[in-house]
């Protein structure tokens, strides 16, 4: 689910980078207020644990021959709380980008939102809402399973939304969204099963680790409900928009346009100022009629593209190749014969 730079436009990359930066700033502030110095090591170690746990593949029930591994956002949110969990997963996403080149540098904002902030808060909120001050094992497993599955799906639906806003892909939004949701439904189920199994083991061996997370604070329930509702609304709005109709709404149908009656004339005579405003709006609206702009930024006409290549490109590409070969060759010739590390 790690996004690459090339799936984003500059405004979307910059916007999500800023949003993730602000989000992380708030998270850091909250973590600083709520954790003590001796928990700093714990956070670092648990982040490293997620990397390590990803090495262990588990067989998937009902899907013979397949296996999966833990993602860990919900597990960390349950173990550490949503703030510290979000911070740890953000740091994992940053290390994955910087050291393992998994995800683009400019897409870091998107990846932090999709894989750290949304899963940690939404997952923890759902977990607490479903658990509802009980210690029942069945309910605990259901809470973990549901929160793991829904957070994976919520993160997955954000990817096509961000690429659609960027206008980078030719692939239709609905096709991309359905593909992402179907693939991540399996991944989410797998994540749920693994998280339930791991937490069941921890509950059996070291129940003290989980004891503080099951103590439900009634003071935070209102906030949790709001967070959950807000995020579920965001998720549903993206999901339900796949079924959105491109026909006029009731008001537009009554006075402006009726697709079923081609001869129908608009009942409103727009004045010049209104027309000018309409033109301005349609020129600069990001998503006219809730769809991608037909002429996105950076788009050029087919004819221009046909003639855009040619000899200039040929000379440039060949020149670059020759330069790279020359640099490499010269370096090999003049370099001291010292072995690499």
């Amino acid at each position: 689910m790690h996004m690459a730079n090339e799936l984003l436009s500059v405004p979307v990359a910059a916007g999500t980078f800023a949003a993730a930066g602000i989000g992380l700033g708030v998270v850091c502030n909250r973590v600083k207020q709520t954790i003590s110095t001796d928990q700093l090591g714990l956070m670092g170690i648990l982040g490293a644990f997620v990397f390590a746990a990803q090495m262990i593949n588990l067989p998937l029930p009902g899907l013979p021959g397949t296996s999966g591994h833990l993602i860990g956002a919900v597990l960390l949110a349950i173990l550490l709380g949503p703030h510290a969990g979000a911070l740890v997963v953000s740091s994992i996403v940053m290390v994955q980008c910087l050291l393992f080149q998994d995800g683009g540098l400019l897409a870091l904002g998107c990846n932090i939102i999709n894989m750290a902030l949304v899963p940690s808060y939404l997952g923890f909120a759902l977990y607490r809402l479903i658990l509802h001050q009980t210690h029942d094992t069945w309910r605990f497993n259901l809470a973990v399973m549901a929160s793991a599955l829904i957070t994976v799906l919520a993160g997955a639906i954000l990817v096509p939304m961000q690429t659609a806003l960027s206008g980078v892909l030719t692939l239709p939004f609905s096709t991309f969204a359905w593909t992402m949701l179907s693939v991540h439904l399996v991944i989410g189920l797998m994540e749920g099963i693994i998280t339930v199994a791991v937490l069941a083991y921890v509950r059996q061996i070291r129940p003290d680790i989980l004891s503080h997370t099951s103590e439900s604070s009634t003071a935070g329930r209102g906030k949790l409900l709001l967070v959950t509702l807000g995020m579920v609304t965001l998720f549903l709005s993206a999901f339900v928009s796949l079924y959105a109709s491109d026909r006029p709404d009731g008001l537009e149908w009554s006075y402006a346009q009726r697709p079923d009656q081609p001869a129908f004339e608009s009942m409103v005579q727009a004045h010049e100022q209104a027309k000018a405003l309409d033109t301005l709006q349609s020129k600069y609206t990001l998503l006219p009629d809730y769809a991608r702009r037909p002429v996105p930024m950076g788009h050029i006409n087919t004819e221009d593209a046909t003639v855009s290549a040619g000899w200039t490109s040929f000379a440039g590409v060949v020149g670059s190749l020759v330069t790279m070969a020359a640099v490499w060759g010269t370096a090999l010739l003049i370099r001291k014969k010292t072995p690499n590390l």
Partner: peptide, 28 residues
């Protein structure tokens, strides 16, 4: 069988988790 493999795998991850928590206490 899958169920048993899953139980063992989860125990392995859980065991690494418990070891991680112990390590973090020592490091702190």
């Amino acid at each position: 069988p899958t169920k048993q493999e899953l139980r063992i795998g989860a125990a392995m991850i859980g065991s690494v988790l418990v070891q991680s928590l112990d390590t973090s206490t020592h490091i702190t």
